[in-house]
């Protein structure tokens, strides 16, 4: 069975994973349905892999924010592979595209997409990122998810700056049914973290998730503040924070790479949550981020509700980056 077929089967789903896959699929494609995909499979056989096809693919990936350099690298790999395997039609090449994209994404780095939660003792997860990307919302969703797995979860309201940020986290805490440790607006975020870690230890919490204020990566003093927060957690719990998750908005373009680099320098980011993937943007820059900075995507955000968070699946994601577009083009040609 070809790689492409495998993915497709995954996407159309066996019954046990339907809801998860459906969600993911919905996020990546609003238009896909059984009928069109059948039609497209048919059409695909009549398409030739020629320069026009490559150009079209290149455009699709650029429009998914994959970025110039990564796209050029992929194209080189593909041209080589197409020649080597003597691939003639597009039905054969979709699997190769997926494979090569995954190859670029992973680039020999085998850090896991899984969230690291300690078997015993307190796990601390710190959320960082620029303004408005979805940190607080993701914390709510993640708390819900971890609680559903039978873990005792606590939240720390470390955004003491933005108007209403503490209230927002509290609403999420109430929704999910977990405790929120907070101080008043304007207080020192490092002090909030200190309190929260103490409380988490005292109450036998399994996972403490820490919110922070959004900050643009070029604000030196704000990045220093974040490092201070990080240090406090580090000092209070050996080995913590166990995860530092960078929230990235899928609509963000090439600046995401600079975001990832700066936040990694400041706080040693261990994973990415790619939010707002329920829109039309695809966040293709995560390929370059993983490739260059070795930061894997761990979750994707697919909406504003409590259960709109899914673990990241590389194959599905990569497939969604280009397949929709190609199918779309095919449909147009057919009409």
């Amino acid at each position: 069975m070809s790689f492409f077929k495998k993915i497709k089967e995954k996407l159309t789903g066996t019954s046990e994973s339907v809801s998860v896959s459906e969600k993911f699929k919905d996020g990546l494609s609003k238009t896909r349905n059984q009928f069109t995909s059948k039609v497209n499979d048919l059409v695909a056989k009549y398409r030739k892999v020629d320069e026009d096809f490559f150009e079209e693919l290149e455009d699709l990936l650029l429009q998914a924010d994959v970025g110039f350099e990564t796209v050029v690298e992929l194209m080189d790999l593909l041209r080589f592979e197409v020649q080597r395997k003597n691939i003639k039609d597009t039905a054969g090449i979709q699997s190769v595209i997926s494979e090569k994209l995954v190859e670029i994404y992973e680039s020999g780095d085998n850090s896991s997409n899984e969230l690291l939660v300690q078997d015993a003792g307190l796990t601390v997860i710190l959320f960082v990122g620029v303004n408005g990307v979805g940190k607080t919302t993701t914390i709510g969703k993640l708390a819900h998810r971890l609680k559903g797995q039978g873990r005792k979860v606590m939240l720390a309201a470390g955004d003491t700056f933005r108007a209403g940020a503490i209230d927002q986290l509290q609403v999420w805490g109430d929704r999910v049914g977990v405790e929120v440790i907070k101080q008043s607006e304007g207080s020192d975020p490092a002090a909030v973290m200190y309190d929260a870690v103490r409380a988490a230890k005292n109450r036998g919490v399994d996972v403490l998730i820490c919110d922070t204020a959004g900050r643009l990566q070029n604000k030196v003093n704000l990045m220093n503040e974040l490092q201070k927060v990080h240090r406090v957690i580090e000092r209070e719990v050996p080995g913590a924070p166990h995860e530092v998750l960078l929230a990235l908005d899928a609509t963000t373009g090439q600046n995401a790479l600079i975001q990832a680099q700066s936040f990694k320098e400041a706080t040693n980011v261990t994973g990415i949550v790619l939010t707002k993937l329920d829109g039309t943007a695809k966040g293709g820059i995560v390929l370059a981020i993983r490739n260059k900075l070795k930061i894997p995507v761990k979750f994707v955000g697919l909406g504003e509700k409590m259960d709109d968070l899914q673990p990241f699946d590389t194959d599905k994601y990569v497939y969604g980056l280009f397949a929709d577009g190609l199918e779309q083009e095919d449909k147009n040609e057919l009409n």
């Binding site: 709510g140 108007a163 209403g164 940020a165 927002q168 609403v171 999420w172 607006e185 504003e304």
Partner: peptide, 16 residues
């Protein structure tokens, strides 16, 4: 009316 505490956010800004 959808985003949690969006109203409080605007009210805080109004107060400021």
């Amino acid at each position: 009316i959808y985003r949690p505490a969006a109203i409080q956010q605007l009210q805080t800004i109004g107060k400021q």
